[in-house]
Design a protein around this nucleic acid. Structure first.
Lengths: 76, 76
DNA sequence: AGTAATTTGTTCGTATGTATC
DNA sequence: AGATACATACGAACAAATTAC
Protein backbone atom coordinates (compact mmCIF):
# COMPACT_ATOMS: atom_id res chain seq x y z
CA UNK A 1 0.00 0.00 0.00
CA UNK A 2 1.17 3.44 -0.77
CA UNK A 3 0.79 6.22 1.72
CA UNK A 4 -0.20 9.66 0.82
CA UNK A 5 1.59 11.08 3.82
CA UNK A 6 4.78 10.03 5.51
CA UNK A 7 3.69 10.62 9.09
CA UNK A 8 0.73 8.29 8.51
CA UNK A 9 3.08 5.60 7.32
CA UNK A 10 5.27 6.00 10.40
CA UNK A 11 2.25 5.81 12.69
CA UNK A 12 0.93 2.79 10.87
CA UNK A 13 4.19 0.87 10.91
CA UNK A 14 4.70 1.44 14.61
CA UNK A 15 1.11 0.44 15.33
CA UNK A 16 1.69 -2.75 13.35
CA UNK A 17 4.84 -3.53 15.28
CA UNK A 18 3.04 -2.99 18.56
CA UNK A 19 0.05 -5.11 17.58
CA UNK A 20 2.24 -7.92 16.27
CA UNK A 21 4.02 -8.14 19.61
CA UNK A 22 7.33 -7.11 18.13
CA UNK A 23 7.20 -4.13 20.45
CA UNK A 24 5.76 -5.35 23.75
CA UNK A 25 4.52 -2.94 26.44
CA UNK A 26 7.33 -1.10 28.14
CA UNK A 27 9.60 -1.29 25.12
CA UNK A 28 11.45 1.86 24.29
CA UNK A 29 10.95 3.04 20.78
CA UNK A 30 13.91 4.22 18.74
CA UNK A 31 14.72 7.84 19.47
CA UNK A 32 13.28 10.54 17.27
CA UNK A 33 16.66 10.91 15.72
CA UNK A 34 16.88 7.24 14.86
CA UNK A 35 13.35 7.20 13.47
CA UNK A 36 14.20 10.30 11.53
CA UNK A 37 17.13 8.54 9.92
CA UNK A 38 15.24 5.28 9.41
CA UNK A 39 12.52 7.01 7.49
CA UNK A 40 14.73 9.59 5.87
CA UNK A 41 12.53 12.31 7.21
CA UNK A 42 12.68 15.27 9.52
CA UNK A 43 12.40 15.82 13.25
CA UNK A 44 9.01 17.43 12.95
CA UNK A 45 7.46 14.67 10.90
CA UNK A 46 8.58 12.11 13.46
CA UNK A 47 7.17 14.31 16.20
CA UNK A 48 3.86 14.49 14.42
CA UNK A 49 3.72 10.70 14.34
CA UNK A 50 4.71 10.37 18.00
CA UNK A 51 2.10 12.93 19.00
CA UNK A 52 -0.60 10.93 17.23
CA UNK A 53 0.55 7.66 18.82
CA UNK A 54 0.57 9.30 22.24
CA UNK A 55 -2.83 10.78 21.62
CA UNK A 56 -4.13 7.32 20.79
CA UNK A 57 -2.72 5.99 24.04
CA UNK A 58 -0.38 3.57 22.31
CA UNK A 59 2.80 5.10 23.63
CA UNK A 60 3.89 7.23 26.54
CA UNK A 61 6.79 9.60 26.37
CA UNK A 62 9.15 10.66 29.12
CA UNK A 63 11.01 13.86 28.49
CA UNK A 64 14.76 13.36 28.29
CA UNK A 65 14.37 9.59 28.37
CA UNK A 66 12.34 8.14 25.57
CA UNK A 67 9.05 6.98 24.18
CA UNK A 68 7.66 3.70 25.48
CA UNK A 69 4.94 1.31 24.39
CA UNK A 70 2.01 1.79 26.76
CA UNK A 71 1.15 -0.95 29.20
CA UNK A 72 -2.39 -1.39 28.02
CA UNK A 73 -2.25 -0.41 24.39
CA UNK A 74 -5.92 0.11 23.58
CA UNK A 75 -5.28 -0.82 20.01
CA UNK A 76 -8.88 -1.79 19.63
CA UNK B 1 -17.24 44.84 10.54
CA UNK B 2 -16.90 41.86 8.36
CA UNK B 3 -13.60 40.76 7.00
CA UNK B 4 -13.06 39.50 3.55
CA UNK B 5 -10.09 37.48 4.67
CA UNK B 6 -9.37 35.74 7.90
CA UNK B 7 -5.73 36.73 8.07
CA UNK B 8 -6.80 40.38 7.90
CA UNK B 9 -9.03 39.87 10.88
CA UNK B 10 -6.20 38.25 12.81
CA UNK B 11 -3.87 41.12 11.95
CA UNK B 12 -6.47 43.67 12.92
CA UNK B 13 -7.33 42.10 16.23
CA UNK B 14 -3.71 41.81 17.23
CA UNK B 15 -3.06 45.40 16.20
CA UNK B 16 -6.02 46.45 18.36
CA UNK B 17 -4.69 44.53 21.31
CA UNK B 18 -1.29 46.15 20.90
CA UNK B 19 -2.70 49.65 20.55
CA UNK B 20 -5.01 49.23 23.52
CA UNK B 21 -2.06 48.33 25.71
CA UNK B 22 -3.35 44.85 26.33
CA UNK B 23 -0.19 43.62 24.67
CA UNK B 24 2.63 45.90 25.80
CA UNK B 25 6.03 45.91 24.09
CA UNK B 26 8.02 42.79 24.84
CA UNK B 27 4.94 40.67 25.34
CA UNK B 28 5.06 37.26 23.77
CA UNK B 29 2.18 36.55 21.47
CA UNK B 30 0.37 33.23 21.64
CA UNK B 31 2.11 30.61 19.53
CA UNK B 32 1.02 30.03 15.96
CA UNK B 33 -0.64 26.88 17.13
CA UNK B 34 -2.62 28.67 19.81
CA UNK B 35 -3.66 31.41 17.41
CA UNK B 36 -4.53 28.71 14.95
CA UNK B 37 -6.89 27.15 17.46
CA UNK B 38 -8.27 30.49 18.67
CA UNK B 39 -9.23 31.47 15.17
CA UNK B 40 -10.08 28.01 13.95
CA UNK B 41 -7.68 28.39 11.11
CA UNK B 42 -4.47 26.88 9.81
CA UNK B 43 -0.79 27.27 10.40
CA UNK B 44 -0.31 29.11 7.14
CA UNK B 45 -3.03 31.67 7.72
CA UNK B 46 -1.58 32.51 11.11
CA UNK B 47 1.86 32.71 9.55
CA UNK B 48 0.53 35.07 6.91
CA UNK B 49 -0.82 37.37 9.62
CA UNK B 50 2.44 37.23 11.55
CA UNK B 51 4.38 38.04 8.41
CA UNK B 52 2.27 41.15 7.85
CA UNK B 53 2.62 42.28 11.46
CA UNK B 54 6.36 41.78 11.28
CA UNK B 55 6.50 43.67 8.03
CA UNK B 56 4.70 46.56 9.70
CA UNK B 57 7.26 46.53 12.49
CA UNK B 58 4.66 45.75 15.12
CA UNK B 59 6.14 42.45 16.14
CA UNK B 60 9.48 40.73 16.03
CA UNK B 61 9.83 37.01 15.78
CA UNK B 62 12.61 34.93 17.24
CA UNK B 63 13.02 31.51 15.72
CA UNK B 64 12.34 28.72 18.16
CA UNK B 65 11.25 31.15 20.84
CA UNK B 66 8.24 33.19 19.89
CA UNK B 67 6.81 36.36 18.44
CA UNK B 68 7.05 39.49 20.55
CA UNK B 69 5.46 42.92 20.47
CA UNK B 70 8.08 45.35 19.19
CA UNK B 71 9.56 47.91 21.53
CA UNK B 72 8.58 50.89 19.45
CA UNK B 73 5.42 49.79 17.73
CA UNK B 74 5.09 52.32 14.94
CA UNK B 75 1.37 51.90 14.94
CA UNK B 76 1.03 55.32 13.49
C1' DA C 1 29.66 19.89 41.76
C1' DG C 2 29.35 20.73 37.06
C1' DT C 3 29.47 20.24 32.28
C1' DA C 4 28.41 17.83 28.13
C1' DA C 5 25.54 14.71 25.49
C1' DT C 6 21.08 12.67 24.58
C1' DT C 7 16.20 12.89 24.02
C1' DT C 8 11.79 14.84 24.18
C1' DG C 9 9.18 18.89 23.14
C1' DT C 10 8.12 23.57 21.19
C1' DT C 11 8.40 27.28 18.03
C1' DC C 12 9.50 29.95 13.96
C1' DG C 13 10.45 29.90 8.85
C1' DT C 14 9.69 28.14 4.43
C1' DA C 15 8.12 25.20 0.56
C1' DT C 16 4.92 22.23 -1.94
C1' DG C 17 0.46 20.25 -3.21
C1' DT C 18 -4.44 20.65 -3.16
C1' DA C 19 -8.88 22.79 -2.95
C1' DT C 20 -11.79 26.74 -3.21
C1' DC C 21 -13.34 31.26 -4.60
C1' DA D 1 -5.54 32.82 -13.85
C1' DG D 2 -4.79 34.53 -9.43
C1' DA D 3 -5.58 34.93 -4.43
C1' DT D 4 -6.82 32.68 -0.32
C1' DA D 5 -6.79 28.82 2.69
C1' DC D 6 -5.63 24.21 4.43
C1' DA D 7 -2.48 20.05 5.25
C1' DT D 8 1.82 18.15 5.02
C1' DA D 9 6.71 18.37 5.20
C1' DC D 10 11.54 19.92 5.79
C1' DG D 11 14.91 22.87 8.19
C1' DA D 12 16.66 25.30 12.09
C1' DA D 13 16.93 27.10 16.78
C1' DC D 14 15.81 26.72 21.38
C1' DA D 15 14.34 24.79 25.96
C1' DA D 16 13.67 21.25 29.63
C1' DA D 17 14.59 16.79 31.57
C1' DT D 18 17.54 13.10 32.09
C1' DT D 19 21.81 10.65 31.94
C1' DA D 20 26.91 10.10 31.56
C1' DC D 21 31.28 11.49 32.79
Amino acid sequence: MTYKHLYQRIVDEIVTRIESGELPPGTKLPSSRELQEQYGTSHMTVRTAITILRDRGLVESVSGVGVFVAERPSTT
